[in-house]
Simulated scan of single mutants.
Amino acid sequence: MPAIRTAHVALWVAYAVLVAVHVGSLLTDAELLQRITQPMFAPLLIAVVLTAVPRRTRTSVLMVLGLLFAWAGDTLAGLASQSGQLIAVLSFLAALVCYSAALAPLWNRSRDPLRIALAIPYGGVVIGLFVACADGAGPMLPAVAAYAVALATMAFLSAGGNGMTWTGGTLFLLSSSMLAMDWFLPGASIAYSGVWVMMTYTVGHALLIAGMVRTLPARRWTSRAPAAALVIVEN
């Protein structure tokens, strides 16, 4: 196995271990460990992308930009203040816009009717959740509305990529929905909601990135050596 592919696989393993450690910290209420591990998700996924793409493309640039915004959101999501929550929402909103821009060409090339039909209810889920959380959002309502639209758009477009992007987009939608209920709908009670939010978010994010990487035409470990040519010399 080429060294770059070994590094790529090792990064995925490191990501899985990090997720397990973070979930364990949630179950044991280890707040310091939670704050240390959560901002490390996006940098590992950025390294995953960079070890896979052989050259800079529109899709890879949008993935990295989306992950940088997600890193900002992960870093600020733990803040209890409303201003911290607002910046986190805006950061994830920017990430969703980047992912949607990366997914749009894939959706245009492979419009699977079944996936599209199954993706249509996403809009209904987001609208219903937004209506339920509107009162609790307060001054953050415009940002939450924009985020809801971006979330539904990304989830819908993810259905047009492949099975991994579709599953990742759906889990991302589920994670954000549960997080919105935690933040803006205090009456809603989901057992271990923090654990479920992070499990669906980390797995969904990973599948979304892995699915977009899979759509790229080449990998860094793909041999690009020219094929040997048979030359016959006549005397």
Rank of each mutant, 00 (worst) to 15 (best):
A7Q: 10
V9T: 07
A10V: 15
W12Y: 11
A14E: 01
L18S: 06
A20D: 07
A20W: 01
H22R: 09
G24M: 10
D29E: 12
L33E: 05
L33F: 02
I36T: 06
T37R: 05
F41C: 03
L50F: 06
T57L: 07
M63Q: 03
M63C: 12
L67G: 11
L68P: 02
A72R: 14
T75G: 04
G78M: 13
G78S: 05
A80P: 02
S83K: 10
Q85S: 14
L86E: 07
F92N: 01
A94P: 02
W107K: 08
R111Q: 07
D112F: 08
D112W: 10
A117M: 14
A117S: 09
A119F: 02
I120P: 06
P121K: 13
G123Q: 03
G124Q: 05
I127S: 02
A132G: 12
A134C: 11
G136L: 15
G138T: 14
A145P: 00
A146H: 02
Y147P: 00
Y147F: 15
Y147Q: 06
V149I: 14
V149K: 03
V149D: 03
A159D: 04
W166P: 00
L171I: 09
F172A: 05
S175Q: 07
S176E: 11
M178N: 03
M178Q: 08
L179N: 05
W183D: 03
W183M: 12
A191F: 11
Y192L: 15
V195C: 07
W196Q: 07
T200E: 04
Y201D: 08
H205V: 15
H205L: 15
H205A: 13
A206Y: 06
L207I: 10
I209A: 10
A210T: 13
G211P: 04
M212R: 06
T215G: 10
T215R: 10
L216P: 01
A218P: 01
R219F: 03
W221G: 08
S223M: 06
A227N: 09
A229L: 14
